[in-house]
Amino acid sequence: MTRFVVRRVMQMLIVLFAVSVLTFLIFNVIPGGDPALRLAGRQPDPGQLERIRQDWGFDEPLYVQYVKTIGNVVSGDLVSYTTQQNVWQELKGRIPRTFSLAIGAAIMWMVFATALGLYSAVKAGRFADRFLTIIALIGISMPVFWVGALMNYYLGFKWEIFPNGGYVPFGEDPWEWFYHLLMPWTALSLLFIGVYSRILRSNVLDTINEDYVRTARAKGLSERRVLVRHVLRNSMVPVITLWGLDFGAVLGGGAILTETVFDLQGVGQYAAESIGQLDVPPVLFITLFGAFFIVLLNTIVDIMYAALDPRVRLA
């Protein structure tokens, strides 16, 4: 088991390394992406450009630049090209916002997906099931930023039921925090509720015919207990795997669209803004930040699987 864990962690580091190289390359080989031009401001003279190149080390070979940049990522000294501010300092203020969005939404979509998926499976083939299936498919088919924008417009701006974007820190006022985040959570959750409830439904339908479920019924357990203890527990495994991965992606700033449309000023929005200005350092930092969470949760899920099922360790 220890060997398996060590191997997975090694793989994780290799993937992170590859992601960092790839991101670095994407932005350094593009034509017209010379960072010195952006640092120099509007009308740079050639001498100034030369000085900037030397100061920032743009004249050095790419691999030297790469090593230096990664060194700065690790030590937290990375500086943005456009605003010339410390990336880590900027990011630190945004992380609570992104985490608030991610944690709340993850709880929301898991609870609703479980309830709807289970209900749909119990009522399989009947009207309620068909209705929920259509609702789930509609949820899957809507772009989150579109739903978000319409919610903002109607619920926030026109009917003034919810605050129109923005964020209030939890420490300041927990209720306002909750109130401001309710719309973003809902918008982000819709897609996941659709996907997860569909998967859970089919898993429940698969397990419900297993022998041990019949045994549980035969020994006189209440239907409710059979469903929760025996059916749901075993149907949840793949859903929880997926939940781990998606939760990791959102934690790492993957909810760019939701953050942007509700103007949450989170990690993802920072990434989107930086990319627009071809500001490589923050993009590199956030990509690594996001990839870290994705890979981390991927690894945790794998290790959990291996702990539960010895066959996986050999693969």
Binding site: T287, G290, A291
Partner: peptide, 27 residues
């Protein structure tokens, strides 16, 4: 498989936007 792992580990949208910005500048 490892190449796919790397693409998989990238946040989908970030990768898309990064490539999009990079390519739409200079083709």
């Amino acid at each position: 498989s490892r190449t796919l792992d790397v693409i998989w580990a990238f946040p989908v949208l970030l990768l898309g936007v990064a490539l999009g910005t990079a390519l739409s500048l200079g083709g």
